[in-house]
Amino acid sequence: MAAYTLKRLAAGIVSLFVLATATFFLVRLIPGSPFQNGGVSSQVVEAVEEEYGLNEPLLDQYITYMGNLIRGDLGVSYQEPGTSVAEVIKRTWPVTASLGAAALLAAVIFGTGLGILRAVSKYKAIREGIAAVGMIFAGIPNFAAAILLLLVFSVKLGWFPSAGLLTPAHYVLPVISLMLYPMAVISRLTGNALATEMEKQYVLFARAKGLGNVRILFTHTLKNAWIPVLNYVGPASASLLTGSFVAESIFTIPGLGREFVSSITNRDYTLILGLTVFMGTVVITVNLITDLVCAWMDPGTRRGYGA
């Protein structure tokens, strides 16, 4: 396990390096200058670019930026002079994290519950109904669900607020719009895995010993059936964070996603790079933790890692 963990950490560092490098050069392909706003003259633009070092050769800019990045300096936002990228992340990340965590928690709880019900129900109508609802939810795009929920439950019925993230009521619509797809996937994974586990020999042996179905479910089969779900939770966390960009824009939530969209529109190179590196770090960390938890739960996986 130790060797595997170190190998994954090294792969994560290399991935971040490649991500930062690719993003650095790609943002430079965006037409125009970050300072070409409001009819500013070309002389002023050139002077400001010189102040920020944008008139230097691209390779020199890259070396300077990567050197600062290694020291933990993400630079200063071009559109908010005097405000560092780290300050922008510190201000907006808790909002996005709370929204994504709430959506992931809701997806896990409801998805697992529906998956269990689908696996253990004796009624074909219930099993097929859960499967059909899951297919519908999985097929609805994130932005379409957000707009539909906003129009019906906020604009038309007025049950929930339409903008911001100030009270628990503000979380309801954006969380629902974000949780639908992962909930459907988790429900299918849990249902299929449980159905397979219930047919295995250890379950038959437990029944022969007189154990009840509920005890067998929560003591034995659910832990094994949850391993595929855990393998999905890591990428799902990344999906929720990127998916929250749309939700934050539609529901006017001042989070990381809306800041990222704004940085692209304003050609704020340092902010785009800083947010990309930060999000990449979060995604790699979550996936590493997920892999380690799966290895801890599954002895076969641990043996495969040489633990």
Rank of each mutant, 00 (worst) to 15 (best):
G129D: 07
A106C: 13
A107M: 06
I116F: 03
A125R: 14
P94N: 04
E80S: 14
G111S: 08
S98L: 08
Y78P: 04
L105D: 07
I116W: 03
R127Q: 14
V95Y: 01
T96Q: 02
R127F: 02
L99T: 10
G129I: 09
A102G: 08
A102I: 12
A107G: 05
L105H: 06
L117S: 10
P81A: 12
A125N: 08
V120K: 10
I109N: 09
S84E: 10
S98D: 08
G82E: 11
V95R: 00
R127L: 00
P94M: 04
V108G: 00
V88E: 02
A86I: 11
A125S: 15
W93F: 14
T112E: 03
R118T: 14
A131V: 15
K124C: 00
G113K: 03
K124V: 12
T83G: 00
E128R: 15
A131T: 14
V85Y: 02
Q79G: 09
G115C: 09
R118M: 12
L104S: 02
K90Y: 10
Y78I: 08
T112G: 00
A103L: 06
A101P: 02
K90T: 13
K122I: 06
R118S: 15
I130W: 02
K122Y: 09
K122M: 04
E80H: 12
A106M: 13
S121Y: 09
G100Y: 02
Q79E: 13
G82R: 11
